[in-house]
């Protein structure tokens, strides 16, 4: 029981983002409406971003911007600042996500124009005929 409580409290970043991740994945695979698939994709990507950015947290640390002491000397102690690398990585991943979203929306507009619908089963029917 203690272990479970420890899991829920000390590792909440992992389980929260994993739950979000599978919600997004389910939306991407199982939904019939293509717009809902895109929404699932965004949730899925955001979950991974949360997973990544949570790695950067460090207890007793502040944002990774170097602080200065009273006599203008930089305070260069690694324990005082959070890990900067995950922030950099998710900044890249966010941009990639936005780019994918833009392309997906453009293709969706085209699908709507060609097939007249964005429901997957109706498109498949339209293709068969």
């Amino acid at each position: 029981m203690d272990e479970l409580f420890h899991y829920i409290i000390a590792k909440y970043n992992y389980w929260a983002s994993l739950v979000l991740l599978f919600i997004g994945l389910y939306g991407m695979i199982a939904k019939n409406n293509l717009m809902k698939k895109i929404i699932g994709m965004v949730i899925f990507q955001t979950a991974i971003l949360l997973f990544f950015v949570s790695i950067g947290a460090k207890r007793g640390a502040s944002v990774p911007i170097i602080k200065f002491t009273a006599d203008k000397q930089p305070l260069l102690e690694a324990t005082a600042y959070a890990n900067p690398l995950p922030h950099v990585l998710i900044l890249t991943a966010i941009v990639v996500g936005v780019a994918t979203l833009g392309v997906a929306l453009a293709i969706l507009q085209k699908i709507q124009r060609v097939h007249g619908t964005i429901e997957e089963d109706e498109i498949l029917e339209d293709q068969r005929s």
Partner: peptide
Amino acid sequence: WADPASPASTHLSPDFLEQGYVETATPNIV
């Protein structure tokens, strides 16, 4: 969560935090 002793916080990030400002004169390490 936020464990200061985790590999992610002890392997590369101290190098960035300690050398970053010295080598680039830029306080924002990100």
